[in-house]
Design a protein around this nucleic acid. Structure first.
Length: 262
DNA sequence: ATGGTAGGGTTCCTA
């Protein structure tokens, strides 16, 4: 089974690239973030024609997430118990959707950006991560994958210019500690062993030709529970999908991350 | 300290 995660920065404007990506790499399950579409706006026709089903966090928000699967989608959950806003009508901005696909419990996540370290959104980000951690501890015994845009660079090696990010979100000790706690609990970054750094990123800002100069960040991760990690046989970051010179239409600012399971 | 690009929730806001 082959799974992937990709912050597409609008599913509607990226649908041609998404469909081409699914075809090219023979993807079974794709978790997407920043769908920027209501449920009634999702571009389903091409996906359904390819045999995929979709589970989306059904609110009107730019941070929306979804899971696209051709190996079944069961037990869909919008948000997780304890998530800030969980159970409320808008489900806390729909930053998390979980489903069981082909025996794997997959969570498509958009961790709050944080905006600025002195912004209330930064406090919300740290709280959100801790609440996710609380819930995720209960899933360690299952085949669980926490995938998506974490908006955290775990080490200086994951930032093209650490000195430029000194007073920015994504690299603060508190964010790194919040990320590290998932690893301490037993979740593993299953991609890094196959994509060693430095200079390996998943996101490049649109401006200043950051991609062309490989000035990026590594912020998209697949964290696997032990029984999930045991099944991983390979992984890669599809940099070509971030290349404006390749494919149809403009690219997302993130590249997809692909993981193979036995 | 600022600005640069992309997408939508648009003539501004978020990333």
């Amino acid at each position: 089974m082959r799974i992937a995660t990709w912050n597409v920065n609008s599913l509607r404007s990226r649908i041609d690239r998404v469909e081409a990506f699914l075809d090219r790499h023979d993807i079974d399950v794709l978790a997407v973030q920043e769908t920027k579409a209501r449920e009634d706006q999702l571009p389903l026709m091409g996906l359904q024609a390819r045999g995929y089903e979709i589970a989306a966090a059904g609110v009107d928000q730019w941070n929306g997430v979804a899971i696209i699967s051709r190996v079944g989608i069961e037990d869909v959950a919008v948000g997780f118990p304890g998530m800030p806003g969980w159970g409320e009508p808008l489900a806390a901005e729909a930053r998390a959707v979980g489903a069981t696909c082909g025996g794997v419990r997959l969570w498509s996540l958009y961790i709050p950006n944080g905006r600025k370290p002195d912004d209330p959104h930064y406090v919300y980000k740290l709280d959100w991560m801790d609440r996710l951690r609380d819930a995720a501890q209960a899933w360690l015994g299952e085949q669980t994958a926490l995938v998506g845009d974490w908006n955290v660079c775990p080490t200086d090696e994951d930032v093209f210019a650490p000195e430029q990010f000194k007073n920015s979100t994504h690299v603060t000790p508190a964010e790194r500690a919040a990320f590290q706690r998932f690893l301490d609990d037993g979740y593993a970054d299953v991609v890094r062993p196959y994509c060693p750094g430095p200079g390996v990123y998943t996101y490049w800002d649109y401006y200043r030709q950051r991609f062309e100069r490989n000035r990026g960040l590594r912020i998209d991760f697949v964290l696997g529970s032990p029984s999930f990690a045991d099944r991983v046989t390979g992984a890669f970051i599809d940099r070509d999908e971030r290349d404006p010179a390749q494919g149809t239409g403009s690219p997302s600012d993130h590249a997809p991350v692909v993981v193979d399971l036995d």
